[in-house]
């Protein structure tokens, strides 16, 4: 126990001050801007439900990294929840497989509105290397309406964070564009 306390005492706060590890200047700008506004509005709240719609778990590893002290998702007022009922953001990864298409749709319907959907990874955008596979139904946008797509295989945590922040920004300003990237289809029931 004493060893643990010593460790806690000597370890500094390791969280990165702002997102700056990714070289994409545009995303960094979005992130910084949203982060500032987030502070101004005395904190925000976003509860995320993660749906693995058939991913190779590469994206999950990166998403898992969001929770660690280095990226510390919680400081933006976001955290992962156990039920779509508690969520207002769905984080969907992977090409949507036949078995996961229906659950994904049900998860979307089970989430109370207003809600946003962020598709994470190349597979979620356009099925990636799995495109055309017999078990694949299509990209996430073929099943549920997508607000923001974060590309990359897998996208680094900072990029995912930037994507979520962008979506958050959109929710607060509904008049802005619905999607920055990727196709959007509206066949999902509202």
């Amino acid at each position: 126990m004493l060893a643990l306390w010593n460790k806690i005492w000597t370890t500094p706060v390791v969280t990165e001050p702002v997102v700056r590890t990714y070289d994409d200047a545009q995303i960094e700008a979005i992130a910084r801007q949203v982060d500032e506004r987030a502070r101004r509005l005395f904190g925000r709240s976003l509860h995320i439900r993660e749906v693995d719609a058939g991913s190779c778990n590469g994206c999950e590893l990166e998403i898992g990294a969001l929770n660690n002290p280095y990226y510390d998702l919680e400081r933006f007022g976001m955290h992962f929840v156990a039920s779509p009922r508690h969520a207002d953001c769905l984080l969907v990864t992977g090409p949507v497989t036949r078995n996961m298409a229906d659950p994904l749709k049900r998860t979307y319907d089970a989430t109370p509105g207003p809600k946003i959907v962020v598709a994470v990874g190349d597979c979620a955008r356009d099925c990636g290397i799995f495109a055309g596979g017999y078990g694949v139904v299509g990209p996430v946008s073929a099943i549920v309406p997508v607000d923001v797509v974060v590309g990359g295989c897998p996208p680094p945590p900072s990029m995912i964070l930037a994507g979520i922040l962008a979506a958050l920004d959109m929710r607060d300003n509904p008049q802005s564009v619905r999607s920055t990237d990727g196709p959007v289809s509206d066949d999902g029931a509202q």
Binding site: T15, G43, S45, H47, P69, R75, G77
Partner: peptide, 13 residues
């Protein structure tokens, strides 16, 4: 070792 959310976060939630 994290920064964590602000004290007022639960109000926002």
């Amino acid at each position: 070792g994290r920064r964590g959310a602000g004290l007022l976060q639960p109000y926002a939630d």
